[in-house]
């Protein structure tokens, strides 16, 4: 794919700016500060606000509920961070992936046992990762369009094969059991999120693969010229996303012990919002899994506040969409200011 830099970026480059690497820049840049460190402050302020002003936020059942709802979105988001860092915008097909995995975990394990359902789900996840990754990595196709089409293919297949019906797990099944285990107010799924975040943090910062993902995100051509098989890097990023979506599907299925093809609607933009608000740059190369975790907490607490205040679904969607645009704008403006 050719340089997709925006016009303003191009002009900034043409004017010959230096990069914001801290040392040469002493002047305080508010926007850069917001996009770098803002998320910590915002999250703390939001939680404090919720504890003080929102009725019913600081109660144990509500906090457990926040954890339950944050866990699957968080698992998707930390996985998708790899795709965003590799400068491929996002993976819209997580909506289809999570729902497919949930339906497989409940539907297949009802008939053939848990192990078989894991095998099928793993196979499907690898297939998603491979199709998205090959189309984007080797054919250099636009990731948004590719994953838009795989979303429709995947959801269409899922609805067709499952007949659009709702699957219920047995009341005493292992999936139900997993969903019910809690340590104090914290459900097991939140620990799954934590473990996956730590694993992916290690992969992104401590392994060769993680390094090439970040390198590819900041400069595709240089990474290719350095002898890296860039197609494989992109496939790897999409496979990690698909595997996380599979785990998220399991957690989601365990939460409600039911599965239906529409259960993951909205996961694409909630996960994207968490990633971008966390401070991972959509321009690629910069970002971290831990930031995404903070972003997930922010988005989940915000959604919870809106729900507790009786604000409808439409307004929630508006707020999160506006947050995405605002966060990306801050990032873009900060980059431009840094290049001046």
């Amino acid at each position: 794919m050719a340089e997709k830099e925006s016009l303003t970026e191009l002009i900034a480059i043409a004017e010959g700016g230096s990069h914001n690497s801290g040392l040469e820049k002493k002047r305080f840049n508010f926007l850069a500060w917001v996009s770098e460190r803002g998320i910590v402050v915002f999250t703390v302020v939001l939680i404090l606000f919720a504890v003080i002003f929102v009725n019913g936020f600081a109660s144990l059942p509500n906090i457990t509920d926040v954890f339950y709802r944050a866990a699957p979105i968080g698992i998707v988001a930390v996985g998708m961070t790899f795709v965003v860092i590799s400068a491929n915008y996002l993976d819209l097909s997580v909506v289809a992936q999570v729902a497919t995995a949930a339906v497989i975990f409940i539907g297949v394990s009802n008939n053939y046992g848990l192990l078989a359902s894991f095998a099928v789900a793993l196979l499907v996840a690898l297939l998603y990762g491979a199709v998205n990754g090959v189309a984007v990595g080797y054919f250099k196709a636009n990731a948004v369009i590719v994953t838009l089409s795989t979303t429709f293919i995947g959801l269409g297949l899922l609805r067709w094969i499952s007949g659009g019906s709702i699957f219920f797990g047995p009341e005493d099944g292992p999936i139900r059991l997993f969903g019910q285990i809690k340590l104090g107010p914290v459900p097991l799924s939140a620990f799954v999120l934590l473990v996956i975040t730590i694993i992916l943090w290690w992969v992104l910062t401590r392994t060769n693969f993680g390094f090439t993902v970040r390198a590819y995100g900041s400069n595709k051509e240089a990474t290719r010229l350095a002898g890296v098989n860039t197609g494989l890097v992109v496939i790897g990023a999409f496979v990690i996303t698909a595997l996380s979506a599979m785990v998220a599907g399991f957690v989601l299925a365990a939460f409600s012990n039911t599965a239906v093809s529409a259960m993951a609607d909205g996961y694409d933009f909630r996960a994207l919002a968490a990633i971008i608000i966390g401070g991972t740059s959509v321009f690629g190369g910069r970002g971290s899994v831990l930031r995404t975790l903070l972003g997930v907490i922010f988005v989940s607490v915000l959604t919870n506040i809106l729900v507790l205040s009786g604000i409808g679904f439409g307004f929630q969607q508006m707020a999160i969409g506006a947050l995405i645009v605002a966060a990306v704008s801050v990032d873009a403006l900060a980059r431009r200011a840094a290049k001046k």
Partner: peptide, 22 residues
């Protein structure tokens, strides 16, 4: 602002869908 059009219009897609609901 200089935002990539994929992400900017994606955010608008979600925000406006919400607006239509509201």
């Amino acid at each position: 602002v200089g935002v990539n059009s994929f992400i900017a219009t994606l955010g608008m897609l979600f925000a406006l869908r919400g607006l239509a609901f509201v």
